[in-house]
């Protein structure tokens, strides 16, 4: 199975958020793409973005010194809000014209809605939520992802082109690669004739200030689970977090029990974080939770149950009651 000569280069979807900035996952993918490009003899790394017409001036600024060879953009007013049908049509047309060998999309809500439609229309494979991307000895994309809630890792190859993958935000680090390539900006025609868009957005209520909250950049995260028993437990957790300059987070059961907001939920159906120190308090450590925090540099676990699974992935496990230890800690 050798690389197909007709396909070359890496294309990345640059999602514009509602606040009109490029989603951080793009920069994470870009860094990884440049590493892949090196292994592919320096093929082009290109981006595709849907801008608001008034936003084009900011475009050059956003891509300055990013090392993107070509930026394909489309500024049709029908594309102001995300539409599965419209966005996928334009990306599919672009791929058919430019034939990239790899297409990367951030696994945001939007990316997970978009990517499978693009893959199906191009009759190619898609590997979801990758935690590692590499080029194998045959020059093919080797995409590694967790399955079964994170307990099993699978490295997946694709027979067709482009080889597609999605990656969640915060899984790859943004590196410090500086690249002074002058990007070429190419305006795309929005060929949407005959595409039926029967989904209309009638309201949006923001529950978070931005898609990014403090957890994404926190160096210390203090997370609580069902062991914290109630909202009082989370008040103590907040006090603890404040005392060490950390941010609070929660497990899914604690969010579902109403102790904490969904926006700070960590795990399979919540956020993925990788702080310097993650302190898990009263969290049993089900794989649905650990998949979202196991890449933390250091993990401290406090749990009453000496058999709690969380101790299996912790650097330091403290067997004891959160309600005893933390007040004592706060006195120190």
């Amino acid at each position: 199975m050798m690389p197909n000569q007709d396909y070359s280069g890496i294309l990345i979807y640059a999602q514009l958020t509602r606040e009109n900035y490029i989603h951080t996952v793009f920069y994470e993918l870009l860094d990884k793409a440049k590493m892949l490009s090196k292994k592919l003899n320096g093929v082009d790394v290109n981006a595709v973005i849907f801008t608001n017409p008034k936003n084009i001036e900011g475009l050059e600024e956003s891509f300055k010194n990013m090392g993107v060879n070509k930026v394909y953009y489309c500024d049709d007013k029908r594309l102001k809000d995300y539409s599965t049908q419209y966005y996928s049509k334009i990306i599919v047309d672009l791929v058919e014209q430019t034939k990239p060998e790899i297409l990367l999309i951030g696994a945001t809500n939007q990316g997970r809605d978009l990517a499978p439609r693009v893959s199906r229309a191009l009759h190619t494979g898609l590997t979801a939520d990758c935690v590692d991307l590499d080029i194998n000895e045959n020059g093919k994309l080797a995409a590694t992802r967790p399955t079964f809630g994170g307990e099993l890792m699978a490295t997946i190859l694709c027979k067709n082109y482009p080889q597609m993958a999605t990656v969640r935000p915060n899984v790859f680090k943004v590196g410090s690669v500086e690249d002074y390539v002058n990007s070429e900006f190419i305006l795309l025609d929005a060929n949407l004739e005959g595409i039926n868009n029967n989904v209309e957005i009638i309201d949006f209520k923001k529950t978070l200030e931005t898609e990014i909250n403090n957890l994404d950049n926190a160096q210390i995260i203090v997370a609580g689970g069902m062991g914290l028993k109630n909202e009082q437990g989370f008040k103590l957790l907040k006090e603890f977090a404040d005392s060490i300059g950390g941010e609070i987070a929660a497990s899914r059961p604690a969010v579902e029990a109403g102790f904490a907001s969904k926006s700070i939920q960590i795990g399979q159906t919540g956020k993925t974080v990788r702080p310097k120190v993650y302190i898990a308090c009263g969290i049993s450590g089900a794989i649905q939770h650990t998949v979202g925090m196991e890449n933390s540099e250091r993990i401290i676990a406090i749990n009453k149950d000496p058999e709690a699974q969380i101790f299996d992935i912790a650097d330091v496990g403290i067997v004891g009651d959160f309600f005893d230890i933390i007040p004592k800690f706060l006195q120190k």
């Binding site: 190619t124 307990e151 490295t155 190859l157 101790f311 496990g317």
Partner: peptide
């Protein structure tokens, strides 16, 4: 179009001390 070339267990690299 896709196939699994390798599957392995994801073992933690944290050295638990309890």
């Amino acid at each position: 179009p896709t196939f699994v070339s390798r599957a392995y267990r994801n073992l933690s690299n944290h050295n638990a001390q309890k």
